[in-house]
Computed example of a mutant assay.
Amino acid sequence: MTSTTKTPIVLIHGLWMTPTSWDTWAERFRAAGHDVIVPGWPGIDDRTVDDIRSNPAALKGVGLKQIADHYERIIRALPQKPIIMGHSFGGVITQMLADRGLGVAYVGVEPGQTAGVTALPASTLWTGTPILSNPFGRNGAKPLSKRHFHFTFGNDLPRSESDKLWKEYAVNSYNRVFFEGVTSVLNEKNGVTHVDYDRADRAPLLIMTGEIDHVVPPAIGKALVKKYRSTGSPAVVDYKEWPGRTHRIVSQDGWEEVADYALAWALEHAQQPAAA
């Protein structure tokens, strides 16, 4: 990691993806002078998409707490607290890390809901059907079909263009992560994704959604913000919805505007850096 006085940034990818899904934002933030750390989930690390597809065994049985603990170890080894941004299930992990007080500002980019946020639009349920339809596969690592990738990530594109992106980015699922995320929705106190919504000392949090996202529609982002704000906590929780954006918001045409907004917001609202 190169030396810099600017706040470091940790980027957390989501389900079905690898750290390469963040290449756009990571390079832009590095060009702005930030150290950017983009670790893979346990079992993904720095492996290639083809390698993971051919041998997904390391993804099996890995759950959300294990992933959050993995990122906590990485963050605590940094010389100062970072800005933490997470996409989709990476946004769930970002909220879990916020509950542990590990960052100076947080951005949930189309983040999944944490425990007790019960908004589950039909399109969101459909994205999980290939996994949730087989409870016996709870600890498996199911491949993501091209058809399902088109619905979840490429719904603004012709199928042929979506298929090209599938080949470049998509990997198997961590089935346990999806089951834990869904079951936590109905178990606010004891769900794996439990957070203290009324925490007063939580660093500022920004929730961003895409208008035509099938996985995390705006209804989920708005429900999350409502949940945090309903407690009366003085901690900052802001919301931004992006017209015409899908679940591929971090690389979809026009991603630069979204990335610049997220970074500007985080820098404006960041708490004073402190040792991690």
Results as ranks from 00 to 15, higher is better:
residue 2 T to Y: 11
residue 3 S to L: 08
residue 3 S to I: 12
residue 4 T to E: 02
residue 8 P to E: 04
residue 10 V to N: 02
residue 10 V to A: 06
residue 10 V to P: 04
residue 11 L to E: 03
residue 12 I to S: 11
residue 13 H to P: 10
residue 14 G to L: 07
residue 14 G to S: 11
residue 15 L to K: 06
residue 18 T to V: 15
residue 20 T to E: 14
residue 22 W to Y: 01
residue 26 A to E: 06
residue 27 E to D: 12
residue 28 R to V: 07
residue 29 F to M: 12
residue 33 G to T: 07
residue 36 V to G: 03
residue 36 V to R: 02
residue 39 P to A: 12
residue 40 G to I: 10
residue 40 G to Q: 13
residue 44 I to W: 06
residue 46 D to Q: 14
residue 46 D to R: 12
residue 50 D to E: 15
residue 52 I to E: 01
residue 53 R to H: 03
residue 56 P to S: 06
residue 56 P to Q: 10
residue 59 L to K: 10
residue 60 K to Y: 01
residue 62 V to F: 05
residue 62 V to C: 04
residue 62 V to Y: 07
residue 64 L to M: 13
residue 65 K to Q: 11
residue 66 Q to C: 00
residue 66 Q to L: 02
residue 66 Q to I: 02
residue 71 Y to W: 12
residue 75 I to R: 12
residue 76 R to V: 13
residue 78 L to I: 04
residue 79 P to W: 07
residue 80 Q to C: 07
residue 82 P to F: 05
residue 88 S to C: 12
residue 93 I to Q: 11
residue 93 I to L: 14
residue 93 I to M: 09
residue 94 T to M: 13
residue 95 Q to E: 08
residue 97 L to I: 13
residue 97 L to P: 08
residue 98 A to K: 04
residue 101 G to R: 06
residue 105 A to K: 06
residue 106 Y to N: 09
residue 106 Y to I: 07
residue 109 V to D: 08
residue 109 V to I: 15
residue 110 E to Q: 14
residue 116 G to E: 09
residue 122 A to T: 12
residue 123 S to N: 10
residue 123 S to Q: 09
residue 124 T to L: 00
residue 125 L to W: 03
residue 127 T to G: 07
residue 127 T to C: 14
residue 127 T to L: 05
residue 128 G to N: 11
residue 129 T to W: 08
residue 130 P to W: 06
residue 132 L to Y: 03
residue 134 N to R: 13
residue 135 P to D: 01
residue 139 N to K: 12
residue 143 P to Q: 09
residue 148 H to L: 11
residue 150 H to Y: 15
residue 155 N to E: 09
residue 159 R to Y: 15
residue 160 S to C: 00
residue 161 E to D: 15
residue 162 S to M: 03
residue 164 K to V: 14
residue 164 K to D: 13
residue 167 K to G: 13
residue 171 V to S: 07
residue 174 Y to T: 07
residue 180 E to K: 00
residue 181 G to E: 10
residue 182 V to T: 04
residue 184 S to Y: 01
residue 186 L to E: 12
residue 188 E to Q: 14
residue 189 K to P: 00
residue 191 G to S: 04
residue 192 V to Q: 00
residue 197 Y to A: 03
residue 198 D to F: 03
residue 198 D to A: 15
residue 199 R to S: 09
residue 201 D to W: 05
residue 202 R to P: 06
residue 204 P to F: 04
residue 208 M to Q: 15
residue 217 P to T: 04
residue 217 P to K: 06
residue 218 P to F: 11
residue 218 P to R: 10
residue 220 I to N: 08
residue 220 I to E: 13
residue 223 A to C: 09
residue 225 V to W: 06
residue 227 K to A: 14
residue 227 K to E: 09
residue 229 R to T: 10
residue 235 A to L: 02
residue 240 K to R: 15
residue 241 E to F: 01
residue 241 E to W: 00
residue 246 T to N: 01
residue 246 T to V: 11
residue 247 H to W: 02
residue 254 G to C: 02
residue 255 W to R: 00
residue 256 E to L: 08
residue 257 E to S: 13
residue 257 E to Q: 15
residue 262 A to V: 05
residue 262 A to S: 15
residue 264 A to W: 01
residue 265 W to T: 07
residue 267 L to D: 05
residue 267 L to K: 09
residue 268 E to I: 03
residue 269 H to D: 01
residue 269 H to T: 10
residue 273 P to G: 00
residue 273 P to S: 04
residue 273 P to T: 03
residue 274 A to G: 14
